[in-house]
Amino acid sequence: MSDKPKIRVATAWLGGCSGCHMSFLDLDERLIELSKLVELTASPITDVKEIPEVDVGIVEGAVCTDENEHVLRTMRARCKVLVAIGDCAVTGNIPALRNQFLLEDVVARGFIETESTQIGEMPNDPVVPRLLKRVRPIHELVKVDAYIPGCPPDADTIWYALTELLAGRAPNWDERTFSYD
């Protein structure tokens, strides 16, 4: 093993389906190769919650709640390079569909008017994150250094982007290397 210090990486899962993290795990045996180069700190995969100072922060999901925003801003403050992974982080994608409607209507539809709900109630416990009026892609709140679009980006796309970033280059996206779905 080389003595070169490992690159410290943290990942976060905001408003999204975790599909991008699943796709990351699809790297399969390449994860072993990656683990020689990087140290994965806080992440839904390691179940470490507190984000330490890291070199690379990878964020999945759109910003839907005040908690999402808090995590995103923490990540930005503690990482040198911030990577948006997946269409939710990059464009807002499916979570952002609710932006066409008023937040009150969306919540009422989900908690009161659902066909299977008998006596509905608006969630109001203070520990429950507050929904923001609008769902936003992460670059509308913080500076993002690199994007990996895709819903989810497949393992090959993630591998290409990570290896390019680890080599100190920006991914060169064209019709062969990425997709929006």
Binding site: G92, W173, E175
Partner: peptide, 12 residues
């Protein structure tokens, strides 16, 4: 894809 548009810089 052809133009490498990996994100949109304008607000949606």
């Amino acid at each position: 894809y052809r133009h490498g548009m990996d994100s949109v810089r304008y607000p949606y």
